[in-house]
Amino acid sequence: MRPARPAALAILAVTALFVSSCGSGGGAETSGAAGGASGGDGAVDYPHPVENCGEGVTFDQAPERVVLLETAPVTILDGLGVLNRAVARAGDFPAEYYDDDLNERIDGIDSLSEDLDASGHLAISQEAVVAQSPDLVLGQPDGVDRGSLASAGSNLLIQEVYCPDSAMNATYETLYDEIGTYGEIFDRGEAADELVAQLRERVDAVADRSQGEDRTAAVLYPTVGGGTTYAYGNRSMAQPQLEMAGFENVYDDVDERVFDVQIEDLVDRDPDVLILLYQGEAEGVEQAVTELPGAETITAVRNGDIHTQLFNFTEPATPLAVDGLERISERFQGD
């Protein structure tokens, strides 16, 4: 879960990085999507620069050894036919996100750690990442530093909606641009264009079905067992997801991706629908909101118009956010 995105905590000594960079990991079987483990369209000249979170990242060649430090990029890599280049992964990869074939291939990727803290953040050492000798690391949990990885020969990319201090308002174009960037990096432009076309068609289909909706909604990440409840503003993928599903985000006036919300404010804004995000188990997620003092007066709670879904079905900008959009549409369309 990424309700907050603190900066990386520690820059490890470069010497230690190089000492630990001699390890290797096993990759998954070749993806069933376009392409194999090497080669590409031949349309990209290397070295190839891209920009990520305002920083230049240069690829001397298409990445061959990828380490996944978050679940979200899996469906992009699979759509481009390069998931077989993932040599290691860390974190929780819920089976509900993927079909049986993709789950089997994910299971074939070496797991470095499945340790998550109470807020859902991955706990892993930078040495464990560098030991895989990656040329691309996707995701940046605390303690993993872009500069130190670069010194060890590893590029790091973060999903654009997670960039610190980002002023970007997310849209589904954010997703299409993200796929285009990956297509450039791996020289899979044709596969990227095909994937974007398929996703556009699905998003447009939901938007067409949702015309005429005039209800409001809020997307929340409640803390089970008590604690902070987070809400998503106009810089999160929750914003375009609600818009495409025909809802007005009650927090569309908040220029943040995610922020703490008090029950009094939620009651005052009185959304017609609640979308609740979670990681791990769904048990207790709905009760974490409905049992807050005064929650029974919220229209969504009173009418039972509450939908829970795993976090990556809304954030960040990946094909899973299209799956999540369709789930929301199926839940509320025609109500």
Rank of each mutant, 00 (worst) to 15 (best):
A4F: 15
F18L: 14
V19F: 11
S21D: 10
G23S: 12
S24P: 05
S31N: 05
G32Y: 06
V57Y: 06
V57P: 07
V66A: 10
V67A: 08
L69W: 06
E70K: 03
A72G: 10
A72P: 07
P73N: 04
G81S: 05
R89Q: 05
R89W: 04
F93V: 10
P94G: 01
Y98P: 01
Y98V: 02
Y98L: 03
L102D: 10
L102I: 03
R105W: 10
I109P: 01
S111Y: 07
S113I: 04
L122Y: 12
V129C: 05
S133H: 11
P141T: 06
V144H: 07
D145G: 08
S151Y: 09
L157F: 12
L157C: 03
P164H: 13
S166M: 11
E173R: 11
T174H: 07
E184K: 13
E184G: 15
A192V: 08
E194H: 06
Q198E: 14
S210A: 12
A217F: 05
G226A: 02
G227A: 04
Y230A: 07
A238N: 01
A238Q: 02
P240Q: 06
E243S: 05
A245G: 00
G246R: 00
E248W: 04
Y251E: 00
D252N: 09
V254E: 12
V254K: 02
V261C: 01
Q262A: 13
I263K: 04
V267S: 04
A295E: 07
V301L: 11
L310P: 00
F313C: 00
T314C: 05
P316W: 15
A317P: 15
V322Q: 00
L325M: 04
